[in-house]
Structure formats: structure tokens, C-alpha cells
Amino acid sequence: MNSSPMLVQLPADIRARVQSPSTTLDQCFENRTSNRLNVLLEGNITILSTPTALRDNLELSASRQNSHVVVKDLSRTGVGIYYHEQLFPLEKIQVELQHRRLTAIVVRCRYLGPKCFEVGAKVISVQSNL
């Protein structure tokens, strides 16, 4: 896992905000079904599939594949990550962290700064005890 490069660059305010892990009770505001646990974990990401209309047009550089990622939060149904490039809805990703492998579908992506996008994905399967 540690052989992949870490390309994401967290803005200072974001870095400060994610320093102390805590449970967030934000489902009232964000229409969430499950509470999220704020974390700051390094993981590894693989983009498993990209929809048709994007496939031939995105410059899927090596850096967009198999790189390090910062996992921002976790819930029963979703995962939030910081990634260094824009991901698009319906892209299928795999995130490996702490002996677990999450497969998820991107649902949103927000620009936070150069080489930093906040990506929200819906978890569709979890493999534990890797």
C-alpha cells in the first residue's frame, strides 16, 4: 500500500479541521442516513471503472490510478476522501485502508484547492481482514 505516491495536497484549514477525529451528527443538515466518523487515515485508491463518455476523454494519467489518498470520513454507507484529481459521479473506486477494502461509487466531488478534491462515494461492498 505504501508504495503508491501521495499526491493530494490538503489546504491548511482543511488539515487543521481533520486533525481531531470525532463523530459528526450532521445528517439533519445533509440528509444523511448514517452518522459519519471523521478520520484522517491514509489509504490507497484504485479507479476500477469510468463511464463511457468519460473514458476516452479524460487524461487518465498514471497518477490518476493506484495512488495514495486521505480518507476523510467513514459511515455505514459512505466514504469521504481527499484526492488530488477530479472524480466524476458513477466512477467506481476501491479504497484500501487498515486491512479493509471498500468498493464504492462516486456520488459527488468538490474542489477544495489545487490538487485537492473532496470526493463522496457510496460504499457498495466491504472486504475485511485483508
Binding site: T52, A53, N57
Partner: peptide
């Protein structure tokens, strides 16, 4: 986002 999801799998829609 909804529009994107409707079109993204189509071969006849350009990037």
C-alpha cells in the same frame, strides 16, 4: 449531476 448520470453511459454523447 442528474443530467450527467443520464448521459454519461451513452456512446452518442461527446465529452
Amino acid at each position: 449531476i442528474i443530467g450527467f448520470e443520464k448521459l454519461v453511459h451513452r456512446e452518442d454523447v461527446s465529452f
